[in-house]
Nucleic acid binder design. Sequence first.
DNA 1: GTTTCTTAGTGTTTTTTATACACAAAGTAA
DNA 2: TTACTTTGTGTATAAAAAACACTAAGAAAC
Lengths: 234, 234
Amino acid sequence: MYSYEYPRPSVTVDCVIFAWDSESSDLKVLLIERAHNPFAGNWAFPGGFVDMDEDLETAARRELEEETGMNDLFMEQLFTFGTPNRDPRGRVISVAYYALVSLAHHADQIKAASDAADTRWISVKDLSEIELAFDHQEVMKIALERLRGKVRYQPIGFELLPEKFPLSQLQILYEHVLGTTLDKRNFRRKILKTKLVIPLDEYQQNVSHRAAQLYKFDKNKYEQLVKEGFVFEI
Amino acid sequence: MYSYEYPRPSVTVDCVIFAWDSESSDLKVLLIERAHNPFAGNWAFPGGFVDMDEDLETAARRELEEETGMNDLFMEQLFTFGTPNRDPRGRVISVAYYALVSLAHHADQIKAASDAADTRWISVKDLSEIELAFDHQEVMKIALERLRGKVRYQPIGFELLPEKFPLSQLQILYEHVLGTTLDKRNFRRKILKTKLVIPLDEYQQNVSHRAAQLYKFDKNKYEQLVKEGFVFEI
DNA sequence: GTTTCTTAGTGTTTTTTATACACAAAGTAA
DNA sequence: TTACTTTGTGTATAAAAAACACTAAGAAAC
């Protein structure tokens, strides 16, 4: 154990908050423009210090709620970044989390947050051209890899969609995250075979073409099936 | 940033060092018996404080080398544990890593380490009956889940075997880690189809039955194939 | 109100991959 | 020489993945 005289690192949490924008079919992340140095004017993931009596995930959820107004989102620890000079002010070890949220579903809450002058949803595909603070480009890279890897064997894609969605939206989401194209018939067959999506007696509204049937994800059924050894796979 | 008066957590690294004992076909981890309180007499994973100017992985590799005498092992960040009261002495955040090593291959170095009175290789299957310090049972659980998950889509099983091994050893290793039985012919076909194992003109020695042909893993070829988009899968 | 445009929704065939399964040959020990 | 243990090998069946194209619905434009 360090003596009290011995310097200790600071410990922070950072949150990569992914959102799927159904309108524009675009994967976005929430970024904050830094007002002060270091990296004033650059963008950074929301984050902050971990309180001394606070659990890491609790701290991450607190940051998440502060920025989006939402709790109870899908959230998972991503990676811990601790390169000695990642923060010029001193030794800062950052435990990164990533969260998934549907932009359409929570449009109202999120809008409040994103209306703040210094907070913005930025498309993942534009991110390489933006100056990110600290090692947040690296954080982003690892978050994307994780999302890509995980979406195939855990039904987390649904966390990014509104409660009710057409299957085409789900397919487009998968295609964007995985960076591939998928055959419509094969994709629908596969999804429906899992029995994890429930068809509703509702249809898309305000579209200028045939309206698609809406479905919802049956999370309870999934959790029950997992206990029985079921493994989701796309 | 915390002011210097504000208390900060300590940050440690802990290493779950997995080894495969070919002799007894047994998966083991390296544990240290604690001499002092808290948890005197209990077993714990090797670990220690991160120096202020030291990278996290560097710290983990330093601990690993101190305990096993080996460097350059397969090692990966596992998870960061930070529940406020996981260490009764104060707030300690532990970044856990896991490493893979072949017991047979490095028998000499490891023996030196494991000969120390307080250091021992303990079979994973006996671990639930052993009193582990801190939250190390939880660490163990997560390390095993990771190993099980990862072994199927990354050729890390080879890291646990000696340089030259018969295919039967590889199969037994997979069966133990995955907790299943595998068909010999199908398993061999699958492994050979990847072209990642090179058959040698050498055979098992000192066995009281027909000696099996030895193979070695072609790591360079694997890394090259990965660049071309190859995905290992068992 | 007919035409145009866009997206929804649906089956079958072929190819690939996974699974199930058994016996002869090698080599050591008794 | 016999018994025992482990190696090493092929085929047939079942399941899953991939490839592929047209009709129907509905809104918008003319």
